[in-house]
Design a protein around this nucleic acid. Structure first.
Lengths: 402, 402
DNA sequence: TCCACTTTATTCGGCTCATGAATAAAACAA
DNA sequence: TTGTTTTATTCATGAGCCGAATAAAGTGGA
């Protein structure tokens, strides 16, 4: 996105819109205080944003009046009438969709069970395009302006190319342009852990200052790393594939083809697979188990199943090692452990803490605060939608015409 | 340093001075092309810098004239008369010093053998202050304006505090203020790997774009990470302690107190110690061996000593794992392996490459270019001096008066 | 020697952007 | 009504940067 550096004006507009989407309706004075801008500047900026129909003003009397002296605030908010955006997450065998209006308000969401792995590139794009189009139609969304797509793997966010993915089994797949052609809309792409990290940091102002490393445990394990609230971008504008760091030289099989990756211990598919192996069940697959299946495993372990407890013990140890590497490599101010995998945090914690302590220098460990944020895949589609809306903000008025 | 955000003007001044120090004397047009500034802006900026005595102009006729048409360029350069700066590196049992003028020209350097470990805080600061003062006096440097100090460990670069160091055995040591009081000059601090990374990226423009991870192998192992040519700062404004990431659960002893750290395989002290153990020599110490001792070990291995070759094989494997972690976590555009330890790169390479390949995803590995830069500790003191001068640029005129 | 040509450097007017101060607006309170 | 309080807008100002015009300082050729 945004290849040419933004002008000061555009930067200011973005900051303003970002704050407004995050914090909800605000009066101009409040915006000024929030962003450290002078009232004059806010007035100027909002005037053009109102002009373009991106923002709208509250009707007089909407607020609890009568008690405060002085001229009442007129709060500004996103118009929400500039069309809608669809956020999509693609997993190994599941697609999650979410429809929001341009103000970021949720209008609909949907889970679809569909195995995506092993589809050819064209077939994959056809399936996704159909699923998205059907979802839009079912919900009467004729004003979709853009699609935001999050998936596992290394995503070139500038050109919308999946450079590599353990899930789609694709290499250098130009998913954004392929889907864009089929749907006739712009498609923005993001790594899934980055999308969730974005959503989480948007909700917590503390996490937007300094450096925040969000380790998402779910279908796979991913890392979203933010510096001063901005997503870190590696070479080719992708994020991190921290989940595929090999921690144990001959550990369990990972979906990336390697062995002993962090993900191969912690991800839902890994825990589910290993739990089935314990029970001598037949077909250990790499399919993503549902929340019920995972819940059952956790419950069984909590009930005292020794073999399962061992699994979680090993996983917790890997989590501790992983967080240790993050601490000593990046010295983040905040570490967030998030995603559906946090459902078993109680089981992971003892070995997690022991491993973390055994391998980090106390003085350095003390510099990072560790947060556990229980979050589901819903937060992920929220993240990708928020991120897409943010990228689109500057184009909203232009897209409105189209 | 520089807690309040710099004004646009100050940023431009810094960029200009930085370029000039890096590239050497340049004419105004050249500066403009180099930095993408209009001639008008360059003229304006240089006028005030000349005024303040920070820059000087070449005398007419200094260049090989006569061949070029048009008005001759008048090149600008650092005055070099605003005082000098001393750069210091502290190792386990060695101190390296370097004296430069404000133009960055080397005036003197010195190695001192002195064991710093196990000194009390006050004693350590006394020793350092005396060493620095004596060095300044011997070289008739009565115009020292600041000291730049690089050391291993986690350095709070804003407040000049050594939060933790395997070498100084100190915790939260306010070294900058302690030395500053003793010497009556400002002291700037930096992690040593960061200082070398800075020096290396200053010499190679390619490495200043995108993300560059410089792994320094020497006395210890450190990482300097730069984003768009700027040193990455973690919590508390320090760098990275990547050398103390534990790669092997029960590996050799490390100076940090842990086991199996990257450093415990690759650092000079580690190779030297393990080589001595092989020869059944008596006292395996953690002292930093000299270049001669290390050279002898490398020669012996090159001559075919199987036990030593095994050492280097294991070290190379660790290096491969380490670089693999960097690639999959940060996706840097460039990875630089540097420091005195590169002397044995030929011995490390086979197992390094095998380990790297076995644990990284080919598509991601392909995104990073790996550079090997043979560099000695001299480059390190150069780095810390350059970095200090850069930080001081804005204050040079002010310090001149003092 | 003088004039055209070339390249470098400076000056000047104008543009964008942000801001403080003054002013207007919209309420409440007396 | 009239003052008070708070919010929003307008306006003049200044910082910073730039393009264009101009000045400066040389070379080359008639």
């Amino acid at each position: 996105m945004t290849i040419p550096p933004l002008s000061p004006r555009e930067t200011a507009r973005r900051r303003l819109l970002e704050a407004l989407r995050r914090e909800g309706p605000m009066a101009r004075v409040e915006i000024g205080q929030h962003l450290g801008m002078s009232p004059a500047s806010v007035s100027d900026l909002t005037a053009s944003l109102l002009d373009e129909g991106i923002l709208a003003t509250e009707e007089a009397g909407d607020q609890a009046a009568g008690l405060i002296r002085g001229r009442p605030k007129t709060r500004l908010f996103f118009a929400g009438t500039l069309g809608s955006v669809i956020g999509v997450w693609t997993g190994f065998n599941r697609i999650e969709l979410r429809l929001v209006d341009s103000a970021g308000r949720n209008r609909a969401s949907l889970h679809v069970e569909r195995r995506l792995r092993n589809l050819g590139a064209e077939e994959l794009m056809d399936v996704l395009a159909e699923t998205i189009a059907a979802f839009a139609q079912e919900n009467g969304a004729s004003d979709v302006k853009a699609i935001g797509l999050a998936c596992q793997g290394y995503v070139d966010t500038r050109d919308g190319i999946v450079a590599w993915s353990p899930v789609l089994g694709a290499r250098d797949l130009p998913l954004a342009s392929g889907l864009g052609q089929r749907l006739g809309k712009p498609v923005l792409m993001e790594n899934d852990a980055s999308a969730m990290a974005f959503a989480i940091t948007q909700r917590n102002a503390d996490l937007r200052s300094g450096r925040t490393a969000c380790l998402m445990i779910g279908d796979g394990v991913g890392l979203g790393f933010l510096i001063q609230g901005e997503l870190y971008r590696g070479a080719r504008f992708g994020g991190s594939e921290f989940g595929h760091v090999r921690l144990r030289r001959s550990g369990p099989q990972c979906r990336c083809g390697g062995r002993g990756c962090i993900e191969a211990y912690l991800a839902d598919y890994a825990l589910h697979r290993d739990a089935q192996l314990i029970d001598h069940r037949p077909a250990p697959t790499l399919l993503l188990p549902g929340e019920e299946a995972m819940g059952a495993i956790v419950e069984q372990a909590r009930a005292g199943d020794a073999a399962l407890l061992n699994l979680f013990h090993a996983a917790g140890e890997v989590l501790g090692d992983a967080v240790g590497i993050l601490i000593q490599t990046l010295e983040p101010d905040h570490i967030v452990i998030c995603g559906p995998g946090t459902r078993a945090m109680d089981l992971l914690r003892p070995s997690f803490e022991a491993a973390l302590e055994s391998q980090t220098i106390p003085e350095l460990r003390a510099l990072a605060t560790i947060h556990v944020v229980e979050s589901s895949m819903d937060l992920l589609t929220e993240g990708v939608v928020m991120q897409s809306l943010r990228e689109l903000d500057l184009d909203l008025a232009r897209l409105k015409a189209a």
